[in-house]
Design a protein around this nucleic acid. Sequence first.
DNA 1: GTCTATATTGTGATAGAC
DNA 2: GTCTATCACAATATAGAC
Lengths: 202, 202
Amino acid sequence: MSLKETDTEQIILLAAKEIFFKKGYDGARMQEIADEAGMNKALLHYYFRSKDKLFEAIFNDAFQKFIPRVVEKMNSDTSFEEKVETFVENYITTIIEIPQIPIFVLTELHRNPERIVGMMKKMGIQPQIIFSGIQKDIDDGKIRAINPRHLLINIIALSVFPFAAKPLLQNMLFDNNSGEYHKFLLERKKEVSQFIINSVKI
Amino acid sequence: MSLKETDTEQIILLAAKEIFFKKGYDGARMQEIADEAGMNKALLHYYFRSKDKLFEAIFNDAFQKFIPRVVEKMNSDTSFEEKVETFVENYITTIIEIPQIPIFVLTELHRNPERIVGMMKKMGIQPQIIFSGIQKDIDDGKIRAINPRHLLINIIALSVFPFAAKPLLQNMLFDNNSGEYHKFLLERKKEVSQFIINSVKI
DNA sequence: GTCTATATTGTGATAGAC
DNA sequence: GTCTATCACAATATAGAC
């Protein structure tokens, strides 16, 4: 098996993710990534040519994880309750595993907004599908009338924000007790979907 | 009047805010700030000694605007509906005037979490006051039982997230039409408070 | 107070030996 | 493929003339 050649590459990617997640593009140093990977700066350039290209590899991956995959389910023919529960549960579970993603993606999106256009096209995102799914539930009288865009953003906001604002909220509301905050984030899986369902039920 | 001496200082602060908001601490360059202020790099150091001190002046101000002042009202004896409406309305109105604040504060908080502790102490934030206000409404049977921490975070998340994620959401959901997005943000004043009230009413 | 010039260090990137 | 040495330039900060 020819895994040897991709081995170093994987180590670099892991180290780069660690550093880029923590410091962002501008704050990260190639030297720091090399240290983290236990090798030399020159090797990073050998494998990825430039800091930019290395970053792109990390960002693209993170961005795809940040965009909920579960969206298709929003258009299935299960009940609204079930759709929301599945979505929120899956989304929060995903983010808990990589909690640095939201603030990382949000930050870098702000640093380089142009990047988004390209990414969106590659991923073939279709929010309209979600909207029509929501609209159908409204028309069928399953939930109260609400602008689908507001509802979608509400769902994402309630799921993502506690991760993006973690350094602040954990300090303000939990005396910086990270164990307590983690427990709180787990609770939100049920809490958020109930909050949403309560709000739109007829 | 001795405004002349503080005049240059104000120009610097304005330029620094512009650049720091756009690029963050790591991305900002003293040269760029000097250009924006129409003066020389050396002057920035003359007035603020270092990039760090200049940044601190900007951040402290932004952070205080980001933390909602309106919290006291959450403990007044008006109805829950009115409290939420006032809070959300005031908060979103404030952010609309300086929409870059959320992502700026969130980013820099993540870059330097230690900073928070000091800031919180200086500001004398007391979330417990809000919690007891919410708890009282629950005990009085005005709203359904809900963990006050979840409710508070929900309120803030729904208000702030659309600003933090603006580059993404405006592109994804509004074809990058900033006018439409701005209209959408204005709508949220009513939308968000209604969403919350619906969710917790008995 | 404000400028020009410069010191000093940091940082991405490449050349070239092994 | 991996390392050491180094280039070229960018960036914060200061010295010193006006």
